[in-house]
Design a protein around this nucleic acid. Structure first.
Length: 324
DNA sequence: ACAAGAAATAGAACTACCTC
DNA sequence: GAGGTAGTTCTATTTCTTGT
């Protein structure tokens, strides 16, 4: 008989799933013969299955008590978890099992930078609350090795900059945006037009989610032989608006986020004094989830949550870091 | 109380199928 | 082809029910 230690170390591949189905029937019928009829097997075959289950689990599971079979405490403890597990397995293998958002209690996970979360989550959660009140969403930021986690199924979706195609991964543009310059209301630089010279003369705030040096703005300035002074680098977009509102720092920011915060804080927006173009964020997932009805439903919901202007521009703008 | 029959479990032997 | 696994049929054993 297998020891409990070896059972714990056992690979799932060594377990016949049909044994668990047999256990379900045995526990439901409390009779080997009736369980056999339920399973469509002969009584001896079901008795053998019970024998294998006894060896596998190290417990008699069902013991004869007169004219009936009594479940052992171990078997009784297994009944609930076994039903849950088999229900989940049946849902996995059910052909074209429809996804019902109104009744689903599925939990999804999403990796994104806080800028995209701030733009997408309010409309997304509004629709979730209305259409799928029991569905839950976990948003993570700065996850290590996102593609590997998507492949493992540890992560459902990731929103980030468009990246080169990789085997097994799918992506679609979800949000495009333009840059604007954000300054506090009453900033001295606002007294005259914000020329390139005046822009470069300011002290700047740079958001760098990755922590890597450089940015699209600094690269473009360098191409024209110019440079700016970055006085503050922060890792989160949401840190920037109040810092800009209470200082003379200039932040070259994603337009949709800047507009949202300009409605809440004393901020003024100006177009950049040089052509910055825009950037595109894409939704990324593993091909394993491509035809999963629930996953497809969430992807459509996320895409539909992008601001209308961003969706129209999606696919046109260049894929460059939003950090500015 | 005892014997016979019915019903259920489980072992033995054999077969079919799959993998290496 | 060998070995392993899980199915089958057949049969032994156990336990309960029923009739005498």
């Amino acid at each position: 008989m297998l020891s409990m230690v070896s059972i714990r170390a056992m690979n799932l591949a060594s377990i016949d799933l049909n044994l668990l189905v047999a256990l379900e029937a045995l526990l439901a019928e409390r009779s080997v013969s009736r369980a056999a009829r339920r399973l469509g097997l002969s009584q001896p075959a079901t008795s053998h299955a019970l024998g294998r289950l006894r060896e596998l689990l190290g417990d008699p599971l069902l013991v004869r008590a007169g004219d009936r079979m009594e479940a052992t405490p171990r078997a009784l403890a297994l009944e609930g978890p076994l039903a849950t597990a088999l229900t989940a397995v049946r849902a996995v293998v059910a052909p074209d099992a429809p996804f019902d958002p109104a009744r689903s209690d599925r939990a999804f996970s999403l990796e994104t930078i806080d800028y995209a979360a701030a733009v997408l989550l309010p409309p997304l959660m509004e629709r979730l609350g209305r259409e799928a009140p029991r569905v839950s969403l976990e948003v993570r930021t700065r996850t290590d090795d996102i593609d590997a986690q998507l492949a493992r199924g540890a992560l459902d979706l990731a929103i980030g900059l468009t990246s080169p195609d990789r085997p097994g991964l799918r992506q679609q543009p979800v949000l495009s945006d333009l840059f604007v310059c954000v300054l506090r209301r009453g900033h001295p630089a606002l007294r005259r037009p914000l020329t390139l010279d005046r822009y470069c003369a300011q002290r700047h705030l740079l958001v760098t989610p990755t922590g890597r040096p450089g940015s699209l703005v600094d690269d473009l300035l360098a191409q024209s032989g110019r440079r700016r002074h970055v006085a503050l680098r922060v890792p989160h977009f949401l840190l920037a608006p109040p810092l800009v509102a209470r200082s003379d720092l200039v932040w070259t920011a994603p337009g949709s986020m800047a507009q949202a915060h300009a409605a809440l804080l004393p901020l003024t927006l100006r177009p950049p004094p040089f052509d910055l173009g825009g950037f595109t964020l894409t939704l990324r997932w593993h091909e394993r989830a491509e035809h999963d009805p629930g996953h497809r439903w969430l992807r459509e919901l996320v895409a539909a949550s992008a601001p209308a202007a961003g969706r129209r521009a999606a696919g046109r703008a260049t894929a460059r870091p939003p950090g500015g």
